[in-house]
């Protein structure tokens, strides 16, 4: 469990990046900080492993103030994955993954064996182990970055827009891979993104941030979608443009059991299976009721909000 207590960060140049931020990040869940550029989400993330120290307030991990120990020891106990992987260009993949175990004094052979296993874990071919990072594709580099983050078997994994720089198809793969990993490994993940769809896909707890890391809303994706707390949130998740509020299109002739859904602007958003033309649990035949039923569209990757 990670707890922020009234954390404020003012940079030397006067920027107030984070103002009086308090939040509990539950263990073994994925918390996603989402917001526009400059809202302070990365600052929040980097305060957890003391890459940035707060100006005031405190952060506790499992009840222990992180400022009480050494920053280096703290960082070694937390996995960190960043955009553009941050791999060391002069070390082979295997040595990159084993960096922290080697720093901690694990024997080289053991560290390498473990690094090989981590390649399997993140879905990379072991043959890539002896390549240099520059010989890998962007998606492969990110996977190596994740493997390095997992190398010390940390309880906490910090991920700073890890999939921001890869193309959409690779990003989909990586997101699914992360969901699978999280299912298997059960880490406390803190994830930063500016992509609301990514946040809703990955997050157990989603934190929508405004400037100065002010919490606009915190909750599960369902809660946020169902009840946007403010116009800002509604706008941020795309609800105000009707993107998230779908309706059965009654103008399209039904062929088979599928029913076409349209969003608030009238654009086709997808189809829903309605056996016999009846929406599950409603008992109401589609098309017989002119008041179309709303369905929340939990992120099918089609939205661009």
């Amino acid at each position: 469990m990670i707890e922020f207590h009234s954390v404020t960060k003012r940079f030397p140049d006067g920027t107030l990046a984070v103002e009086d931020f308090s939040l509990v990040l539950p263990s073994r869940k994925t918390t996603v900080f989402v917001g526009s550029s400059g809202c302070g989400k990365t600052t929040l993330l980097r305060m957890i492993n003391r890459m940035i120290d707060p100006s005031s307030g405190s952060i506790e991990i499992d009840g222990v103030d992180i400022a009480s120990g050494s920053a280096v020891a703290l960082r070694r106990s937390i996995g960190y994955v960043m955009q553009n992987s941050g791999l060391l260009p002069h070390r082979r993949v295997i040595d990159n993954i084993a960096t922290v175990p080697l720093l901690k004094g694990v024997k080289k052979a053991d560290a390498h064996t473990q690094a090989m296993e981590l390649l399997d874990t993140v879905g990379l071919d072991r043959a890539l182990a002896y390549r240099y990072p520059s010989q890998l594709s962007g998606g492969q580099q990110q996977r190596v970055g994740v493997a390095r983050g997992l190398a010390v078997n940390p309880n906490i994994l910090l991920m700073d827009e890890p999939f921001g720089a890869v193309d959409p198809i690779v990003r989909d793969d990586l997101q699914q891979e992360l969901l699978r990993l999280q299912h298997d490994l059960d880490k406390t993940v803190v994830f930063v993104t500016h992509d609301i769809d990514e946040a809703f896909l990955l997050g157990d707890q989603v934190v929508i941030l405004e400037k100065g890391a002010q919490i606009a809303q915190v909750g599960t994706p369902k809660e946020i979608l169902a009840n946007p707390a403010s116009d800002f949130v509604a706008s941020f998740i795309g609800a105000d443009r009707g993107k998230r509020r779908l309706a059965v299109d009654s103008t399209v002739a039904r062929s088979g059991d599928d029913v076409v859904l349209v969003d608030g602007a009238g654009y086709v958003a997808g189809v829903i299976e309605a056996p016999g033309g009846v929406l599950p649990g409603s008992g109401v035949g589609v098309g017989t009721n002119s008041r179309a039923r709303s369905v929340s569209n939990k992120t099918d990757q089609a939205g661009d909000a």
Binding site: V72, L74, R75, Y80, M82, Q83, G86, L87, T99, L103
Partner: peptide, 20 residues
């Protein structure tokens, strides 16, 4: 970013200098 990453995964300043 490479240096930043080295620091973030827990290298000391000396290790950053010598190893990165």
């Amino acid at each position: 970013p490479t240096i930043d990453a080295a620091r973030a995964i827990g290298m000391t300043e000396w290790q950053i200098l010598l190893k990165v």
